[in-house]
Design a protein around this nucleic acid. Structure first.
Lengths: 223, 223
DNA sequence: CTCTTTCATGTCACATTGACGAGAATCGGC
DNA sequence: GCCGATTCTCGTCAATGTGACATGAAAGAG
């Protein structure tokens, strides 16, 4: 067919919000190129795998999370001729949005993986900086016109928690009252849980679950 | 490195608006798989090429257009194990937006290429239907919040022509007066040409050039 | 019991939008 | 040369969404 063949890898930008800080899962490389540097979790696509399947498999291996209920989408592909010293490797970046995990993780596949605040991430192996930047920008954009912020939340959550997601991802502050009006007036975004309340320090908040709506019309603007 | 290698191709969704109809450039295949069927223009990535360079080269070969001033972006990658009977081929879809070309083309690379109204396109070779659908959807979305509609237009154009682009891409009708107010009130979208006017059948229209603005705030909604 | 904190609801000015009216400038036909 | 059709351009008005801000409701801390 053609002589110039590529190895194909999937790399994952896995985003979550931990204690109000947008964070991503990174692994410290234990093998040949860029040894010891931080990189996105990822791996080569197996012979009979499709891209999204491969990304889902990597996600499970790194976090133990299955895709059910979570969000995983393709970002973009990177194939600069010199991006990998071993030869021609095309990497398909993916974006995963997950809720704050109970524990980072223990004896999983890549034990060297941990969460890092996105704002503090410096240089990464390969061209993973660019992929991470693309993932963060995509997430920021998608919060504007979709209901995806809820995928960062546990199954039941308050409006404050949801607002915290927006503030962490966007790096801005939002007016609690206007935010509440916006999300509660958007049909299908939030379904109130059976009168349950939770508590922190002030008045208890109503708990919600995700609604069926996926898009936000009109969008939530961040200016 | 790994045994499972891929051939990597770029495929192009080239969109334009011809006589008020959103159209795409397709080629009739003259070789082995899917011989005789319609397909997106594209080809394999050369040994030292990056993806966007490869797509730009294909665009030149198919249309004679250089990228200067036009729009070319990556869409997504497709790598289902059985998408190509010859073996594992990963295709990186790209989207190009071009103005209505003076002539389809003549003795260029793929002489079998021609413009087809998007609405009338049936089944395509490989999984090119999906790529085309993704390209059209991306173009529709981008008209909402960017000034990219102008890339469909010649260097100088009227507000009516621009509105025709929106109507063709979205398949809707827009109020001429509200549309005019919207685009002329958006700073940096349109720069009025030195008082020139054009003509069709009614009152002559002001000619504009593209401004420097790339995003639309607030966006143009299509409902 | 009062203060503080956070949730929840409401008000008001302002900008944008959608629907529409009407004048300005051209052309084709009589 | 006049008339009507056509299209560009500007303007009006009500409805809607947003930003800024006040205020009440429901908890815990001292």
């Amino acid at each position: 067919m053609r002589g110039n063949l590529f190895a194909v890898a999937v790399d994952l930008v896995i985003l979550t919000v931990r204690e109000g800080v947008l964070s991503t899962l990174l692994v410290r490389r234990g093998v040949a190129p860029f040894l010891g540097e931080l990189a996105l979790p990822g791996g080569f696509v197996l012979p009979h795998e499709d891209l999204l399947d491969s990304a889902a498999r990597e996600l499970v291996e790194e976090t133990g999370l299955t895709i059910t209920g979570h969000h995983l989408e393709q970002l973009a592909s990177y194939a600069a001729p010199d991006r990998d010293p071993r030869g021609r490797v095309l990497s398909v970046g993916h974006l995963a949005l997950v809720p704050d995990l109970p524990e980072p993780q223990a004896g999983s596949d890549a034990a060297a993986s941990a969460w890092y605040p996105v704002a503090e991430v410096g240089h990464l192996a390969f061209d993973h900086d660019r992929i991470l930047a693309a993932g963060v920008e995509r997430a920021r954009a998608k919060l504007e016109y979709t209901t995806l912020a809820a995928t960062f939340c546990p199954p039941e959550f308050t409006v404050s928690q949801l607002r915290g997601i927006y503030e962490a991802v966007w790096g801005t502050e939002l007016d609690p009252r206007n935010f509440q009006r916006k999300v509660t007036n958007t049909p299908g975004f939030l379904v109130p849980t059976a009168r349950k309340v939770s508590t922190g320090r002030g008045r208890p908040a109503q708990l919600f679950r995700r609604g069926e709506a996926t898009s936000l019309h009109p969008p939530m603007l961040r200016d």
